[in-house]
Amino acid sequence: MKLLFLLFLLLVCFTQIGSGHRGNLRFRQCEKMGGMCKNQKTHGCSILPAECKSRYKHCCRL
């Protein structure tokens, strides 16, 4: 019974680690495109089609 509980706990841990990793990949697209997440008030940069974590920022290449 203890072994079954430990296997279940391990499964839960791996699913949490896996889901967090996939979420970060979405936001790392900006870095892969050669940009950085900047505030929307930044002028003089070209906006790239990638997502940033904050809705007040956009992916910007200087």
Rank of each mutant, 00 (worst) to 15 (best):
L11P: 03
C30I: 00
F5M: 15
C45H: 05
R26G: 05
V12A: 13
H21G: 08
R26T: 09
C30T: 02
Q16S: 07
E31T: 09
K53M: 11
C13N: 10
G20L: 09
F8T: 13
C13I: 15
C37L: 04
L62I: 12
H58F: 07
G18V: 14
K57H: 00
K41C: 07
L3I: 11
K57Y: 01
C13P: 09
C45F: 04
H58L: 09
E51D: 14
F5S: 15
F27L: 06
Q29A: 06
N24A: 08
C52L: 00
M1P: 07
L48A: 05
R26D: 04
Y56G: 10
G44K: 08
L9W: 05
F5I: 15
L7N: 09
A50Y: 02
H21Y: 12
L10I: 13
L48I: 01
I17P: 01
Y56R: 11
M36T: 13
N39T: 13
I17S: 10
G44Y: 03
R22G: 02
Q40A: 01
C52W: 01
Q16Y: 11
S54H: 12
C37A: 02
H43N: 10
S46T: 15
M33S: 03
C52Y: 00
K2I: 09
I47L: 01
L9C: 10
C60V: 03
Q16A: 05
L4N: 04
L11Y: 04
K38V: 02
S54I: 07
R22F: 12
T42V: 13
L7Y: 11
F5E: 14
Q29R: 12
T42M: 06
C30G: 02
G44V: 01
R61A: 08
C59W: 00
C13E: 14
R26I: 11
H21A: 14
G20A: 12
G18A: 12
G23C: 10
R61K: 15
M36L: 15
G35Q: 05
G18D: 14
L11K: 03
C60K: 01
M36Y: 08
H58Q: 06
C13L: 13
K53R: 13
L62G: 07
M36A: 14
L7D: 06
L62M: 12
C13V: 12
L9Q: 04
G23D: 15
E31Y: 09
C37Q: 00
H58E: 04
Y56I: 10
L6T: 07
K38H: 07
L48T: 01
A50N: 03
H43E: 06
C45S: 06
F8W: 13
L48Y: 00
I47V: 05
